[in-house]
Simulated scan of single mutants.
Amino acid sequence: MKTVLMILMLVAGSAAAQSKYEAAVLKGKDLLKAADDQEAYMGCANYFERIAQKESKEWLPLYYHSLSLTLWGTRETNPDTKEKVLNDALALVQKAKKIEKNSELAALEGFVQMMRLTVDPATRGQTLSPTIYALFGEAIALDPENPRAVLLMGQMEFGTAQFFGSGFEKACGYIQRAYDIFERTPDELTTLPTWGKGMAEASLAHCNQ
């Protein structure tokens, strides 16, 4: 009887700890969704860094820490600061991939590399483009219904088409597909990544111009 009670207490304690962790991640997701400038993204990065330090076996805090820095990088105008922020983001997502390999992490790593390319497109285009396409391809292969992977592939194709002055049909096909996946994905409370629908809508608007 004592053994059964001890097991039940351990299970209850583990569930409570997991609930605190999940609540912390959900709070961070809300902070990240509301962020709209570098300072706010920095705050999100610091928040998820603290969670990652406590939950060293979990990949999601590292994922959101990296995502916070990447989104900061999209707003940063100082090339040196942007480079540092994105390099930190890359190190974090690669650390997370040592814990688990999945579609979301592959897509995020591709996103980070895509933003690193924008720091110096003329120099980095040839070297980074194959890596970025490979990462997005890996993400889609791991989960064809991951709208973030499909959307980011579409954005990469769009940028490539702009650079070479070619058509946007392929890019917009990916973007439309990503939007459709977002549309049929039910809203639910989850610690897993759900971001990107607004980005898909904005990208689709460019396709429809």
Score class of each variant (00 low, 15 high):
residue 1 M to C: 13
residue 4 V to T: 14
residue 5 L to K: 10
residue 5 L to P: 09
residue 8 L to T: 09
residue 12 A to C: 06
residue 14 S to H: 10
residue 15 A to F: 03
residue 19 S to V: 08
residue 20 K to S: 12
residue 20 K to Q: 12
residue 21 Y to P: 01
residue 22 E to D: 05
residue 22 E to T: 03
residue 23 A to D: 08
residue 24 A to S: 07
residue 27 K to C: 04
residue 28 G to W: 04
residue 28 G to L: 01
residue 29 K to I: 03
residue 32 L to Y: 00
residue 34 A to H: 00
residue 36 D to P: 07
residue 38 Q to S: 13
residue 40 A to R: 02
residue 41 Y to F: 09
residue 43 G to T: 12
residue 45 A to P: 08
residue 49 E to D: 15
residue 51 I to R: 04
residue 56 S to A: 15
residue 57 K to L: 14
residue 60 L to Y: 08
residue 64 Y to N: 01
residue 67 L to H: 04
residue 68 S to M: 05
residue 73 G to A: 06
residue 73 G to Y: 02
residue 74 T to N: 07
residue 80 D to N: 15
residue 81 T to R: 15
residue 82 K to E: 08
residue 86 L to A: 03
residue 87 N to S: 14
residue 87 N to F: 14
residue 88 D to M: 13
residue 89 A to Y: 08
residue 91 A to Q: 14
residue 92 L to I: 05
residue 97 K to M: 10
residue 97 K to D: 02
residue 100 E to F: 12
residue 103 S to T: 01
residue 106 A to G: 08
residue 108 L to I: 02
residue 108 L to S: 00
residue 108 L to Q: 02
residue 109 E to H: 06
residue 109 E to G: 05
residue 110 G to V: 00
residue 111 F to V: 01
residue 114 M to C: 10
residue 115 M to T: 10
residue 115 M to Y: 14
residue 116 R to V: 09
residue 116 R to L: 13
residue 118 T to F: 15
residue 119 V to W: 09
residue 119 V to G: 12
residue 120 D to S: 11
residue 122 A to D: 14
residue 125 G to L: 04
residue 127 T to P: 07
residue 127 T to K: 13
residue 128 L to W: 06
residue 130 P to K: 04
residue 132 I to C: 02
residue 133 Y to P: 07
residue 134 A to Y: 03
residue 134 A to K: 02
residue 138 E to L: 13
residue 142 L to F: 11
residue 142 L to G: 11
residue 143 D to I: 11
residue 147 P to R: 10
residue 150 V to F: 04
residue 152 L to M: 15
residue 153 M to Q: 15
residue 155 Q to V: 12
residue 157 E to S: 14
residue 158 F to R: 15
residue 160 T to Q: 13
residue 163 F to A: 15
residue 166 S to H: 12
residue 167 G to P: 12
residue 167 G to I: 12
residue 168 F to Q: 14
residue 168 F to D: 13
residue 172 C to R: 08
residue 174 Y to I: 07
residue 179 Y to R: 07
residue 179 Y to S: 09
residue 180 D to H: 05
residue 180 D to M: 04
residue 186 P to M: 07
residue 187 D to P: 09
residue 189 L to D: 12
residue 190 T to G: 00
residue 191 T to Q: 05
residue 191 T to S: 06
residue 194 T to K: 07
residue 194 T to P: 05
residue 196 G to E: 04
residue 199 M to N: 13
residue 200 A to K: 03
residue 201 E to S: 07
residue 202 A to H: 06
residue 207 C to L: 04
residue 208 N to P: 08
residue 209 Q to L: 12
